[in-house]
Every structure is written in structure tokens, then in C-alpha cells.
Design a binder for these strands. Sequence first.
DNA 1: TTGAAAGCGATACCAT
DNA 2: ATGGTATCGCTTTCAA
Lengths: 339, 339
Amino acid sequence: MKLREFAQQLGLSPTTVSRALSGYPEVSEKTRKRVAEEATRLGYRPNINAVRLATGRAGAIGVVMGRSGEFHFSEFMGGLAERLGTEDIDILVSPMDDKNPTGEIQLYSRLAVSGRVDAVIVHSPEPNDERIALLHKLGMPFLVHGRSDIDVPHAWLDIDNEGAIRRATSHLIDLGHRRIAMINGRQGRTFSLHRDKGYRDALQARGIAFDPRLVAHGNFTDELGFRFARSFLEQTPRPTAFVAGSMMTALGIYRAARSMGLEIGREVSVIAHDDVFPYLTADNMVPSLSATRSSMRAAGARSADLVLQLLSGRPTEEVHELWPVELILRESTAPPQGA
Amino acid sequence: MKLREFAQQLGLSPTTVSRALSGYPEVSEKTRKRVAEEATRLGYRPNINAVRLATGRAGAIGVVMGRSGEFHFSEFMGGLAERLGTEDIDILVSPMDDKNPTGEIQLYSRLAVSGRVDAVIVHSPEPNDERIALLHKLGMPFLVHGRSDIDVPHAWLDIDNEGAIRRATSHLIDLGHRRIAMINGRQGRTFSLHRDKGYRDALQARGIAFDPRLVAHGNFTDELGFRFARSFLEQTPRPTAFVAGSMMTALGIYRAARSMGLEIGREVSVIAHDDVFPYLTADNMVPSLSATRSSMRAAGARSADLVLQLLSGRPTEEVHELWPVELILRESTAPPQGA
DNA sequence: TTGAAAGCGATACCAT
DNA sequence: ATGGTATCGCTTTCAA
């Protein structure tokens, strides 16, 4: 059913009906109520594409999904969707070919120019991120999940990666650890750099020399956690503690230690960063895993809020949010043996 | 830039330009080429919402995401996006409130009636699935990822869950296991029922009595894997083997066995279903995990194809695809002790 | 092979 | 508080 027919059935003009449904103030309460009721009864729904064309708003926000199967993606999306579900705003997922970074830039242009989204969320930014420059140039509102050093104003929501890892590392040092390995995220991402910094600062504050042979970078997979941990543990002297970038990395470290007959929480300490997943919890691991923790789902939900604010005119410069990260100590951390 | 302006710059009518860009046959090759080149040069892109309104097509397909943080969701989405990226079709993600099933039905109606998507993908169907009935009634094209017994024609793509679990169970029986526990997916989903059937049939074929105390249902989480495995392993006599519904479940079972001092691959055998994740691989577990395997990402990609076929008129009854599942034996399966 | 003009189904300005 | 109508930017029929 279209607006015209619906309006006719009510004996009203399309204009009034449209206004009633969109919550404009100049419609009488009585009319509004009747329109709303009849709309439900007769099943009238505005054609979304006509609305979009007429208003120039897409009623959707875009998220670009990397191919490298990040497992936190669905949690972030879940939060986003949860919050946006109450608004009448769609989430558009576009694929991005990690292997072809040029393609990504084209993708963002397409998203922006074609008018299918009102705003975009950018993930895993780099210090000098082309995407941010592009979106700014195109005048497309966007929120960065993470941060960038780029000299372009951008709204962002990030967790305090630096502080989290600094605290985690400091805690290990407090326990007496001196050889602390770090398995970080992909080289070049801002969050990896921040974590590197937190790690180095903690060491430096206690006069511990930074040893590049104890630091690795890569995707957050169980496999890399295992391989890096193995190779670190084969060094002499071996590290007595690990700082891990993700839950999956931690799984790999646990396996590596176990495969070498080392007991986690006694011979090897581990602190990982936990994005909080319903299907894999630090508390349930054996031994339970000490972790820096911040909910990815909450970040998704809050991102939705911030994008909405951006769209309703809140200035970019005001939209900066840095979340503190909890440090939760469990059984996987203890003083090094002999300490 | 709008079509009108662009056409003017070329000295052509909007009509011709539109036809040229949309690949209509009646445009001269020369004109088409020129239009295409200029479009790139001047950066002209049709306003997607005007196209949608004019054609009545949404240029998007909808996916409803459950809240319960399924970790395979992003893999499926990845496959979908990968395949749809080359078409000019968007993916719309809508949140669904698991706790409020009525809401889901409303959600599907909204999706269908508002015209924001041309088709929908339905996940984790039940034998008698309301959503399928609804979409059929509304005349909205849809693909079911999984199957349903409902008496309504529906296109589907599914893996052979029954066969996979039958083979897995049979293999364990062949090895000499008699007390085989099964940690299955959520009660009531078709795939869980199929897996139940595969399990029971395998037992029955070998004259082994079905013991309901060895079967559990629930979400695919590490935690449930652990808890169910613990409670099973505390029985006397305890099961000597497990069939697990997911990788996360398997992680939980590994932990449970380990926490009780039982060695996987010797005292306890495990076969899990593996949807193939980049961040957690059966081969890398210790001991490496025997698994029935089928790529979720491939299913996503193929789903995109099938939806496209549906949209280009292929009859629903023809779109049924049942994928065989590999059984890959690794170190987590062995004859029971003393056998 | 090309073009003119009538939709597509809403919104929002201008009247009343 | 309500209504008439131009408008959003493209597609598509019909005519040339």
C-alpha cells in the first residue's frame, strides 16, 4: 500500500499522514493516534527508498569488514545492531579485500558517493590512515573505532590500549618477572603501536632493557600464539611471562607451554587482552586467565550512539571517547619460580 | 553530480546515458565506451536511492543476526560479502532479540514490507519455522541456511549434519567405544535434530543402547562444553568418547578432561564439528582434534550465489543444496583404553 | 540509435 | 491543524 491510498482510506491528505507518522508537532494528537492505529491495522509502511530519495538520508550506516576473519567482528556488530535496532537505521556490511588496499579506498568512495550510507565506521586504523583522509575529503561523517595520528579531524572511540598493557606489564614486573614476552597485534595498526608503547614504558620505568627478541606481531590467531610462544620459550633464558593481544593468542600460549611441560601460573605467567566473548571466557580457562578486559559489544553499542550524535550535528571534535580497561587478575599470573 | 548534468556535459540525453551505464543493448558501442570513460573521469555515480525507487529493487539482501554471539556468524558473513562484493548488492544486518521471538517475526515483516531488501537469509531454522512461513506468505524471496520440515517451499543450503555425525559416531564405535557422549547444539534447531539422528542411528546400527544421560544440548560455548563434559566424565562408568558440536565445545571438553587428569586421545576420544576458522584450527590443537569439517565461509559465499539465482528467477524448488562433510581423523581419537 | 516525458512514493514548502 | 504540489534522481515506455 502506498501513502496515497492509505491517506485516502483515512480521509486525510498524504501530507498530514506523513507528518503524523514522522512525529511532526503540528498534527493534532487525535489525528496522530488514529493514523498510527490504522497504519498498524492496515499494515501500511512507507517505502523506504522513496523516503531515502525524498529526504536525501540513507537511513543506514556502513561497516567495512576485513577478510581476515576477525572473531571480534560479530561482537562489535552485535552491539551496533542491538543499539541501532531501536532506531530505524540499517547496518550495511561491505567486504574489503585485505590483499588489495587500493580496493578499500575505492570501496569507501563508492559507499560515500553512491549515497547508500549516512556514515561509516572505520576499524583498526593506522597512524596515517588513508581511509580517514578520504572520508574527510568526501565529507562523509565517520567514526573511527580506534585512533589515528593523522592530521585530519576524526571522531573516535577507543580503549586505553597503552594504559592497559602498561598496567599488565607493570603488574608482571611487580610480581618479579624480568623476561616478559609480548605477542601483539598486526604490525602498523595504531592499537598495536599503543600496546607496544605501554609495554616499553612499563619496562623502562623499572629499568628493564627492551629486548626485541621478546616481541612479536601478527593476527590474533591461536596458531600464531602457539608458534610465537614456542619460539620464545625455546630461548635461553626463556621468558617467565607473556602479555598476549587476544584470547586466541592466549589459547596458543597455553598450548605451547603445555606442550613443553611448563605449567601456566607457576612456570609461565600470562595476561591477555579479553574483548569479552560469550563463547570463550577467561574465567573458565584452566588455569583461569588474568586479563585486561573491555567489552567489544559495548564498544559496538556505544559506537552506534556516537554515530547517531554525529549525524544529529554534534561536532566531530567533541566526539572522542577513551575507555579505561579493567585488569582482572586470576590464576595465570604468579611470581616467577625462584623469586 | 546527477544524471542530468552528466548527460549534458556529454551532449547526450539522460536516457541514453542511463542505458549505456546499465548495459542496455540498444546503445552504440562507441557511445557506451565514451559514457563509461567519462563517468570514471568525472566521478559520476547514480544515486542509489533514486535507482532503487525507480526500479523497485532494493539492491540489498538481509541477514538477521542473533544476539547470542555466534562466532561462526562473521565467517558466514565474510563469505557472503566476498561473493557479493563483485555485484552491486549490499548486505543488511538486522539485530534480532533472541529473548523475544515475536520481535523476530515483526522484524522480518518490516524487512519485507519496507522494501529495503530483495531477499533474506534465514539462519538456524527449526523444523516448523514461523519465519519461513511468514516470508513465504509475504512473497519475499529467501534462502534458508539449514533446513526445515515445514510444509512450505523454501530454497536451502545445508550441510549433511546427520551423515557427518553418523560417520563420526560410527568411527568411534569402530574404534571400540561404547559409551559415547554427545554435546549438541541448541535444542529444537533442525541441525541439532539431524545430528541427534545421526548419532542415534549410528548407535542403533551397532546395537548400542541410546542413553539420554550421555546427550546434552546448548549453545556452542567453551563453558557449556566444559560443564557438560565434566558432568559426563563424573558418571560411572564414564564415557570414553565425545562427539562435540563445535570447536568451542571441544575446547571445553579438552579442559574438562585435563582438569580431571584424563588424557585426550588416550583416555578420552573427541571428534568435533569444525566450521573452519582462521583463528582456531583443529590441526593445531594439542592433541590435534579429529573433526567433521565444512567451511562456513564457503557456505556464505555459496549462499550469495544461490540468492542471486533466486532473484534472477530460478524456481525455489530447484534451489536445494546438501553439502557432504569431511571427516578428518587426527590425534584426538583412538581406541578406548583396554580395548 | 537516441530523446521526451511520465512515473517510482515519499517529503516539505507554501497556502489556507 | 490540514492540504496542494513541486521535488528528490533515476528508469522506462513511447515516439521519432
